[in-house]
Design a protein around this nucleic acid. Sequence first.
DNA 1: CCCGATAACTTAAACGTTCAAGTACGCAAT
DNA 2: ATTGCGTACTTGAACGTTTAAGTTATCGGG
Lengths: 403, 403
Amino acid sequence: MRRHHPYHHCRVANPLFHNPGNYDTRYSRRIVEKSRVFTLTIKFVKGLFNNQMNKVTIKDIARKLQVSATTVSNALNGKPGVGKAARKRILQLAKEMGYQPNYFAKGLVSRQSYAIALVITNIADPFYPQLALGVQEKANAYGYSTMLFNTNHSIESEKQIIQMLGSKGVDGVILSTVEQDDPNIDLLEDLELPFVLVNRLILNPKKASRIDSVSLDNYGGAYKAAMHLCRMGHTKIAIIAGDMASSTAIMRTQGAKDALAEFGVTVPGEWFVVSGYTKENAFDATRHLLSRKERPTAILAQDDNMALGVREAAFVSGFKIPEDLALVGFNNIGFSSLTGIELTTVGQDQHAMGMAGAEMLIHKLQHSPHPGISSKIVMETELVIRKSCGYHLKTQEQTSPSE
Amino acid sequence: MRRHHPYHHCRVANPLFHNPGNYDTRYSRRIVEKSRVFTLTIKFVKGLFNNQMNKVTIKDIARKLQVSATTVSNALNGKPGVGKAARKRILQLAKEMGYQPNYFAKGLVSRQSYAIALVITNIADPFYPQLALGVQEKANAYGYSTMLFNTNHSIESEKQIIQMLGSKGVDGVILSTVEQDDPNIDLLEDLELPFVLVNRLILNPKKASRIDSVSLDNYGGAYKAAMHLCRMGHTKIAIIAGDMASSTAIMRTQGAKDALAEFGVTVPGEWFVVSGYTKENAFDATRHLLSRKERPTAILAQDDNMALGVREAAFVSGFKIPEDLALVGFNNIGFSSLTGIELTTVGQDQHAMGMAGAEMLIHKLQHSPHPGISSKIVMETELVIRKSCGYHLKTQEQTSPSE
DNA sequence: CCCGATAACTTAAACGTTCAAGTACGCAAT
DNA sequence: ATTGCGTACTTGAACGTTTAAGTTATCGGG
């Protein structure tokens, strides 16, 4: 007996086995292009559509109970000056009538929205969801809600977002800037919008003392990672950076170079590549890197996403990881621990970072005018050694020449 | 020459080579526990800390130009009834003084906040970031901002969020419910908060006709996936579901079972496992499944995360994928295409889904009272065949017995 | 018995905007 | 010259809440 439904003839799309080098972002792109939506609009009858919200206000409650609006307000907010009996009746009736305080009226007089904005480069980067979750959990715990904005690494778009926030009524901003010494920080200061930086650190000494931040010990993390490669005997090491504009990239580069310097290793110019922050960018950069005559034996990618791109490029170019090429990433995103990937990387706790950022901002909002104090949190990193660096194959480590 | 800095003695943490079976979420947990933060508080001098915002208002502008507030308002909003010269002067001065409209006052009278809420189960699930991005991009394009909330699969927490939203002044809600027939949908209706469902579909016919949604063709996707396994000759197939409460899981299960039924295959009770939505849940479930005497030759995981858990469990139990066990996932998250993972899965376009949801909600908000019309969008899926199902090893397919 | 203090309440203004209803004025048609 | 009308503008109320400054009534102490 044959069932009838629309999926009977199941189409097999883009069978990758026809395409053995299967690292392919065009693949996902193809899906995107192909995805169709079909809409069906259903009519139904509904008695009367009541568009205007017949919201119950404080005044409605006051009228019904023959008291003043102020008394109702005080009762609802647990303020003194309301008798026990009256308070009880008011709370009771408010509940019955389904009273919901009007957010706008409240905000208009109190000048507080209990909303904060989280402005990051891109929520689809696996680094950020955990951070966003941390921010949101902590904010919620304090009664704040969180608005999310993505700058897509564009200064211009960041500027627009911040300007918009100025009149959006958020109490404060948690920002992961696009660039080191981002001009939009000045904008935030001009707008007198309280903010903290997250995953970024201001290096400019003129501003640094003024600006709160929760950052990562990127220097130390990269130092440890590079040190590790040196100890494994590598001297031909390439670095693939996302950009050189953010404090993150600057510190990671510095940390790596300082570690290498201790072993007397330097990275030649053509082995220091600034590729952009995506897997695809790193893929292209690595293919190029590996096509030359002189090849590195190890690559430090400044981000796990990029490391995954390096990995794919190595495979496509016919190199094995770690046998032919050692690879170290940064961030310890969820997938780097999977069997077959086992990426050596530098770990941290994005969730805690988000929580710390939110806590810091809200503290600032609530205990506002501690003039002249700024605080910085720097979070520890941890080198997570897996198989992509080949450590499990080695029997003996090099020691630092200086030790 | 020895450089001095705090990272000289670089600690190597948790070397996984001591721990060969390295699938270990305790691993990341350990990092979380270990992550320390160190705070340094820096004092600096700042002239006078001006806490109260000396915001410029419409009245300030009006006073300076000797016109009424209404005229200023009209000029700024591009409304008619303002002379050319006056309009120009007003706009000019507003810019000079850095006028920012007060969001609360505006909202109080217009009853619009131009903010929508996106309520999902968990932003850290790789399914959602792309969706959130889509929502946010579309919302921004219409001048709306997006608030993000996570329910963590808890009905209670979802309820609290929605109740809070009632007085938070959002114009509408995009919701990915925790459960099929979620009681909080009634709550949203009671609060008269416009909403659309995303990644969910209401099956209950009494409510379905009233509720807007953007969902996935989960039935069709699962059907295709199961069909594929059958065509490859599998008859011993297990299904690992996240839950059986959401429409997603219900439809995926139904689709798979219908496809299997066409080949006369049924899934015995102990091979249909409801594990929970995480990689770890699926890992445990699979270990249990594979420890029995009678084992399936293929597993349908209803989610790529879970499929990755299945994969790790298979490796730990000593089985190879796809040789010993075929594996199919669902969602086509970014990492399923990596070399060495190459998960066969069902793809879709989360970004487009988010855009469609936002578009639908905003349309609803702006053309509000079309009484008696609800719309549903069902998005297509696509079977993405990679290596985890063993298709690349096969030479011949089975044909459906009914064909 | 009166005074001052405290508690329970009320009044009215304020927050910054929009909106409905007005006024004033110039200009064209009668 | 009067009417009518459109344009440029003003006035005052309204949105729902909080808050400062009242007004009563009650009570205990001297």
